[in-house]
């Protein structure tokens, strides 16, 4: 990482710690904010958070690794999470999955070369009556069929 980038990130994290507070109970909110902005929480960011909150870096890493929506590895600009739990599974998740993989040329757990999309599975989205469902960033898409899903993915930037 460039020094300038590091400085900017440090500044940003300092601002967030100021906004949410440096108490432990702010940790998850700060991590969510960084995840949202940078699409991952880098090792440098983790250590900056640890320093400013007076906790150990491994504690930050431990918390990140616990929650599915936080990641330490860079992700694409858009994170697509396809629900794989029972109701969506029964409603035809497999066909959507196959179509999406074929269209993007990547598997789940991977990111497209142009950093546009990361594909992930997720557990129940609470859309069981409208499955198959997927989440793109924080937006939810339901009643998917393979063609629809692919069209939606092709439209996102």
């Amino acid at each position: 990482m460039l020094v300038v980038e590091k400085n900017n990130l440090s500044y940003e994290i300092e601002r967030m710690v100021k906004e949410y507070g440096s108490d432990r109970q702010s940790l998850l909110q700060i991590l969510q904010a960084i995840q949202k902005k940078y699409k991952h929480i880098s090792d440098f960011a983790q250590q900056e958070i640890a320093r400013l909150m007076n906790i150990h870096p491994v504690e930050v890493y431990s918390v990140i690794s616990f929650y599915s929506f936080l990641s330490t590895e860079p992700k694409g600009r858009n994170i697509v999470r396809l629900c794989k739990t029972i109701a969506c599974d029964m409603a035809g998740k497999d066909a959507v999955e196959t179509a999406v993989k074929r269209e993007l040329g990547i598997s789940f757990g991977e990111t497209t070369n142009d950093q546009r999309i990361s594909l992930e599975y997720t557990n129940c989205l609470g859309m069981c009556d409208e499955g198959p469902a997927m989440l793109i960033n924080e937006k939810v898409y339901t009643h998917l069929d393979p063609e629809m899903a692919v069209n939606i993915l092709n439209e996102i930037k």
Binding site: I55, H56, P57, V58, E59, Y61, S62, S65, F66
Partner: peptide, 9 residues
């Protein structure tokens, strides 16, 4: 010292 923690779930 804070080197070890539980990782993942």
């Amino acid at each position: 010292v804070g080197v070890l923690e539980a990782i993942k779930r």
